[in-house]
Every structure is written in structure tokens, then in C-alpha cells.
Design a protein around this nucleic acid. Structure first.
Lengths: 223, 223
DNA sequence: CGAGGAGTTGAAGCAGGTCAAGCGCTGTGG
DNA sequence: CCACAGCGCTTGACCTGCTTCAACTCCTCG
């Protein structure tokens, strides 16, 4: 990366904002276009149905970008909310265009993000469409665990869990009650240990097998 | 668009290939990186589980691009197959990088494609996670109908259906039997009419209501 | 000390899955 | 030119994974 590119990238992160847990910072249908770089904390992208039911589409972890392509949409097609306390860099999406035109290395970085996000969302579709409840859970836990590993936020086999079981249910397309029971079964079969705000993955090989998890979908990306 | 850009875009489509119905032209795990522009025909992106069950992630229709970001993945994270007879333009993915560096208007077009593909895949996740069977079906039919409309492939309320009910089931995360029954129920309630290879959407307003379909997710994109 | 959010558990019902059989078309080879 | 194999579709019967409803516990915070 050139000196100029490094400076530009750092400049993007000048305008930061703190967001309280639970706050929606993007609302579906909103036409104020804004791109966010997640500096710290977890957030979700989700949509809401008429009766209030919710489908969480994906999790954004530190380093992830939200609204990378928002310039090409008239409105946001999803909402975004803070899972815990967030620090966001707020970026004018026109600067993303500028990156694509002027800074080839940074532009490649953005394409890398895009490719990975597609793979993650594809995995989410497989979970929702074809895995039974326990496998869905295991699959999501493994996804988050690997992603945290890649950004150095991983504390051994302990996985940070800032979300509630209700959030989990809305991610996995399950009811709260069944999510709770599936979690209990994974616990009883010794695959995980649950504490207040963390889950320990006791046997990663068995979880991978149960979930048919393919870590390549997260790791096999390069610039 | 500049003359140069138009010529470059046309040049991309010089190397075309015909693919027979049913043939896989991308296989998950393959590391031969190739980008395809769908000139004619329908294709699917899908993944396969251990026991052979399949989840179709998305449909590609004429004008769509497959593997736009493949340069940043070590291997394909999905397979792709022809639904009917395809004509594909085969593009070296390095030319995509070239577009991003040299042709800003074309590059914007690619970002537009990307943004739209994200919205479509997000809708697929909502279908799979939170809609009951009939609504899933209605939602998919409306998606395809609107997308065909946008590329001028729409014959009134008749929707081309090159896929089998098995393909539909694997798209919607349902069993073949239940897909068949849901289709029959939509037929009996007068919402659709089914012929050999087409479906007529008899009452689009009611289908939209049933599926909680939001056409903005397809149409509200601009460059 | 009381209210409200998060988690847990039981009981009952149902949407959707599985198994199985049969129909009708189409293509192919004797 | 007919026979039969195979695929796509349909329907019936039964089963189960998940949902829903409801109640209760625990914890936190005011």
C-alpha cells in the first residue's frame, strides 16, 4: 500500500460516532446514504415483517464495513442495529467511489470484503434452508468463532456472545423456545458450555461435522 | 459511457460459450477463476450438503454476471448450473480489475450489480428464515417476474419456469412434496395458473401481500 | 421491593417432512 | 411402431421437528 493510500484510509476513520447497544443506526427504507466502518463492537443487519417478526441477515464484527454499495441503492434495503456499544467511522459513500477510482490497492480490499460478505450470506442461506436447528446453531457459532479468530478477537475456545437467545432465534429462523432447547441439547451432548455472555466450543471437530461447516468460505480470500 | 468503454464492454463478450441444460459450469472448490456474463438462458448458484441435499442460493438471468469477485477467493464457494440452454461470455476476472481501474462508468455498473445481488440474496434469506411455504413460493415468483420485467423478458403476467418443482423445492428450503402441495394451494385459491413451463400470476396485488414482497429491493438501484 | 427482560420448561398443535404408490409424458431402442 | 424406462408431477397416509401458549425462575436495575 502506498503512503498516500494509508493516509486516505486513516482519514476515512476520522469521523467516528458512538452508538448505544440496541440502537438502530440504519433503518430500512431510509434514503440518507451513509457508509460505516465498524471500529469496535458488534452489529446486525436485519429486516422486519409486517407482524414484527425479524430476520437477521448477518453480523458485522470489528473491521467490517456496512453500506459499501449504498450509493447504488435509492434506499437502504435492510436495517442495522448495535448489539453492544459500537464505535463507528461514518464515511460519505462518495469516498468509496473515490477509492475505486484512485486507490487500486484499497479498491481491491473493498472487493475482498464484498466477496467474503457474499460467501457469508450464502452460508446463512444454506443454514436457513437446509440445516436442522442444532446444526444451524453450531454453524453460526463456528462462523462467528472463525471470524473473530481472523481479527484476533478470539479468546481460545471461548466465544463472545453479546446477543440474546431471541437474537439467535431471529438469525436462525427459529422460535425462541426451540433455540433455547437446541442450545440445551448442544450443552447436554457436551459440544458447548454456556456462560452468561460467552459460549465455549468444547469440541470443534464434532461441531464442524454436525454443521457441515466449511471454514474455506471465510478464510480462502486474498487480495 | 465513453466510446472506449462501450468498446471494452463489447470486447468482454467476444469469447462466448454454449452450455447444455443441467450442466455444471462452476463447481464448488474449483480454483480455476473465471467470470461469466449470462448472455442468454437461466442459471442457478447452489451448494450441496454431504447427503446430496442441495440449497439453491440465487438465479442468474440474462444480463447477470457470475463470479464478479472471484479474483478475491481462492476457490469457488458455490456451484453454478445451467437451467436451460445458456450462452455465456467467458471473461478473465483480471479484466474486472481493469474495469475498476480504467473505466469508472463501467465500474459503477459493476457496483450496481453487486448492490442488487446483495439485496436479492438478503430477500432469499428472509424467505428461507421467516416466510411459510406458500409465501416463499409467491415471493420467489414475484422476484423472478420483476427481474424479467426489468430486462424486458416479461410476457404479460406469464412467467417463464424453466426449473422443475425439485429445483423450486431446493430454492425454497422445502421438500418436493410440500412444494407441490403449496403450488397446488396457490392454484386452487386462484392466485396463479400453472402450465407446462409457465406460471401465470393471476393476482399480483394479493401475491405481493401474501409474500410481503418489496419490489424496491429490485428496482430502486441506480448508477 | 417490585417490574421487566432473559432464560427455562411443560404441554399441545400443526406445518412441513418422509415414505410410498401411481400417473402421464417423452425419448429411445428392439 | 410399439414397449418400456425414466423423469416430473400428484396424491394419500403417517410422522416429527418446530411453533405456540403459558407458566415460572432468576437476575438486574430503579
Amino acid at each position: 500500500m502506498s503512503q498516500e493510500e494509508i493516509e486516505f484510509l486513516e482519514g476515512l476513520q476520522n469521523n467516528t460516532v458512538d452508538v448505544e447497544p440496541g440502537v438502530d443506526f440504519v433503518v430500512e427504507g431510509d434514503d440518507r446514504k451513509m457508509t460505516f466502518i465498524l471500529i469496535d463492537g458488534w452489529s446486525i443487519r436485519y429486516t422486519t415483517l409486517r407482524d414484527g417478526r425479524r430476520q437477521i441477515l448477518s453480523y458485522a464484527l470489528p473491521g467490517d464495513i456496512l453500506g459499501l454499495h449504498i450509493n447504488f441503492a435509492a434506499q437502504a434495503t435492510y436495517s442495522a442495529a448495535a448489539m453492544n456499544a459500537l464505535k463507528l467511522a461514518v464515511v460519505d459513500p462518495r469516498r468509496i467511489l473515490e477509492i475505486n477510482q484512485k486507490f487500486p490497492i484499497l479498491a481491491s480490499g473493498l472487493s475482498w470484503c464484498t466477496a467474503r460478505e457474499f460467501a457469508i450470506l450464502g452460508d446463512q442461506a444454506v443454514r436457513l434452508g437446509r440445516l436442522p436447528a442444532k446444526a444451524r446453531l453450531a454453524h453460526l457459532l463456528l462462523e462467528l468463532w472463525h471470524r473473530l479468530e481472523l481479527i484476533g478477537h478470539n479468546d481460545g475456545k471461548w466465544l463472545e456472545m453479546p446477543m440474546t437467545q431471541n437474537d439467535l432465534a431471529d438469525t436462525l429462523g427459529l422460535s425462541l423456545v426451540h433455540t433455547n432447547r437446541s442450545l440445551a441439547e448442544l450443552r447436554k451432548s457436551g459440544l458447548i458450555t454456556v456462560s452468561k455472555s460467552h459460549i465455549k466450543l468444547e469440541n470443534i471437530a464434532d461441531l464442524v461435522h454436525l454443521a457441515e461447516f466449511n471454514p474455506d468460505h471465510l478464510t480462502e480470500f486474498s487480495i
